[in-house]
Design a protein around this nucleic acid. Structure first.
Lengths: 210, 210
DNA sequence: AAAATGAATGAATGGCCATTCATTTGATGA
DNA sequence: TCATCAAATGAATGGCCATTCATTCATTTT
């Protein structure tokens, strides 16, 4: 019988896709603990509970594994992002707020996951592939933010406000708050971070966020 | 004769301090091109125009060289920072603006230099020493920002504004704008970045930034 | 000018790690 | 039950790179 695309087999012979995902997950864990420079293929394999050569078997090279890991992170973020857009109330102000809350929520604004993003960002200038993936990722995000900001501006009395400027400021703010989550002691305060965003939203869009 | 602390000798025998600085400069250049993972001690030595063993001679180990490089970056930033505070008009609103302009000015918001900062941030979670240095650096910065924001709040009618919140938002915004400078194509627009900051300042401190 | 001192060199060493591949293992179908 | 095949293993290989150190070189002292 033809095997289905997404099998659920486990054990010695899992489906090709499962193995790849398992290895990507292991890679993420390793990077979050030891950084990109510190993770070896042996680390990844053992984190996945598999043997030495396994990464080369499924990804050909370490370089490729890292590229695919970054792609996965980007794609995973995009899924969450789109889910939030779909599941939040239709008003653009509500959607925007929901996105900000997602960005600073525990699923995303988490030291372990951020460590991995920053590890890749740290090599962006040195590795053109990372640069391309990250640039595409950011563009998609900021286009959507811009769209929402424009809708809010059109709804209210914000004639002299530029959607681009506000969208830039918002996305810069979340990125920067992520950095302080990563760097600050474990004392990082999600509430305080959200306050920073709320305060900005309230002051630029007073009609919408009261 | 007793040699003076800061000699200006060059050539085969430069003063100890000069050599160290020369090697730190070379390290910064290498990291900005090839990332931390990609720079070898041989690279650093040859970038400095010196020989193989030179880094170990002056810094004992690669680890130590990297720590000292990060310390230097932090200290260099702090000097600029303090110079700006001294040389700007005394009003806190002016000083705050001058700082933001410094952060987004060409000396600091430059892809090459930012690549190095991000390279270290990318390893913060994996290397405790980087974490300590960065945390101290950030704390110093945000204390000063907080102070300025508090003074502005006290001067104006901003009773219900929290200095902490505004300071957090501002420093997050500059960090985030740095990331987009690093990741975005060469099209990064310093003007647009400053606009994002201005727009925020105008909306939280309308009395001061009109 | 000779000796002493400290800086710099670069070849040699050893360890780590990505990658390879001959072999083993388990599943599938006849 | 056996044959076939893909998946997985893990020992072996080779390259890269941090570190060491005996030697060379320049400067200072006597």
């Amino acid at each position: 019988m033809m095997p289905v695309a997404t099998t659920t087999k486990t054990g010695r012979t899992a489906s090709r896709e499962m193995r790849r995902q398992q290895l990507i997950d292991a890679t993420i864990k390793c990077i979050s603990r030891k950084g990109i420079g510190g993770t070896t293929l042996a680390d990844v394999a053992s984190m996945a509970g598999l043997s030495q050569g396994i990464v080369n078997l499924h990804f050909t090279s370490k370089e490729n594994l890292l590229n695919e890991t970054l792609r996965y992170l980007s794609q995973e973020y995009r899924s969450r992002f789109e889910a939030v857009l779909e599941n939040s109330p239709p008003a653009p102000a509500e959607k925007l707020l929901a996105l900000m809350e997602m960005d600073l929520g525990p699923a995303i604004c988490d030291r372990k996951k951020l460590a991995v993003w920053f590890a890749f960002w740290g090599e962006v200038k040195a590795v053109p592939t990372y640069q391309k993936i990250c640039a595409a990722h950011d563009r998609a995000y900021s286009v959507k933010l811009h769209e929402l900001c424009q809708q809010i501006i059109d709804e209210g009395n914000y004639a002299d406000l530029s959607a681009t400027t506000v969208a830039d400021a918002l996305s810069a703010m979340t990125d920067g708050l992520w950095l302080s989550c990563l760097i600050g002691a474990r004392s990082f305060d999600r509430e305080a971070a959200l306050d920073a965003v709320y305060s900005y939203l309230r002051s630029v869009f007073p009609e919408h966020y009261e």
